[in-house]
């Protein structure tokens, strides 16, 4: 469905962020994208969303190359933007309407869909933000903003959801809710996280970006999570000393950074 072919991305200043990334997402597949900080997870999602053009390589959606020419075509641009949506890590960046209602209605209004009111109320209900519809998005908490953004994306009825650290702004209760919510979605999802204890909840397959900005692993997530050598190579676990009573030893730790 969505495919990266030998995708590399280099900043204008020359720093390499992604190196020869190659994978394909199948329809309705749930995939987790793992990697330590600074390995290029967010950049990869932006490249997949057609926002940043790969320096070399191509991104394909439904057999069509996503490049400037394709996105300049109004009909295809609209279809791609509607079917492949990206939830930014910082929900603030996505919010710009005067009220939560307008925020969620922004997509359907652009498309000229009928019954915008009904659609907004439906998705606000699904995401639990119905009581906030008259509020201004700027005044919401991080978790509320995240839900409003999700409602604004899901109302488009997309086929592929790219989610960048969706739990980063959430408290444990909201995190639990989001995990369940995403599990029930029919769409193809690609979720980035550096939170290993949650990774298994977001999908069965995982992609791992290494610190050399290459794809280090692509396969079943449980195999990866039980492979200490690979986890250490990806800088997702570390060992350090600690004490149990009088004895001191060291072993692998998985640390929550969120």
């Amino acid at each position: 469905m969505l495919q990266a072919i030998e995708v590399s991305y280099r900043l204008p200043e020359g720093q390499e962020i992604l190196r020869a990334i190659d994978f394909r997402l199948a329809r309705e597949e749930k995939v987790v994208l793992l990697g330590a900080n600074g390995t290029g997870k967010s950049t990869l999602l932006k490249v997949l969303n057609g926002l940043l053009p790969p320096t070399t390589g191509t991104v394909c959606y439904d057999g069509r190359v996503i490049d400037r020419a394709a996105l300049r075509e109004a009909a295809f641009h609209q279809r791609f933007r509607r079917e492949v949506v990206l939830l930014f890590q910082n929900p603030d960046t996505m919010l710009f309407n005067p009220t939560v209602f307008d925020e969620i209605a922004f997509g359907p209004r652009q498309l000229g869909l009928d019954d915008v009111d009904g659609r907004v109320h439906h998705w606000a209900g699904e995401l639990g933000v119905a009581p906030l519809l008259e509020r201004t998005p700027f005044g919401l908490s991080g978790g509320e903003k995240q839900r409003v953004c999700l409602a604004a994306l899901l109302i488009l009825e997309p086929k592929v959801l790219l989610l960048d650290e969706p739990t980063a702004n959430m408290d444990p209760r909201s995190t639990g809710w989001l995990v369940d919510f995403l599990a029930d979605l029919k769409q193809t999802t690609l979720v980035t996280t550096h939170n290993l204890s949650l990774a298994g909840e977001f999908g069965d397959r995982c992609l791992v970006l290494g610190e050399d900005h290459r794809l280090l692993y692509d396969g079943p997530i449980q195999d990866f999570l039980s492979d200490h050598d690979r986890l250490t190579a990806a800088n997702l676990v570390h060992r350090h000393r600690h004490r149990h009573g009088a004895t001191e030893h060291s072993h692998f730790h998985i640390h929550e950074w969120d």
Binding site: N49, L51, R81, N90, T93, L95, F96, A152
Partner: peptide, 30 residues
Amino acid sequence: EDLRLAAESRRLRRLRLRERYLQSAAAAVH
């Protein structure tokens, strides 16, 4: 840069002047 990309990501057609002003103003507010 993220504000710019997020606005682009949510754009489905050519935006009206009003919508573009809202986006610019929101960027400044953030």
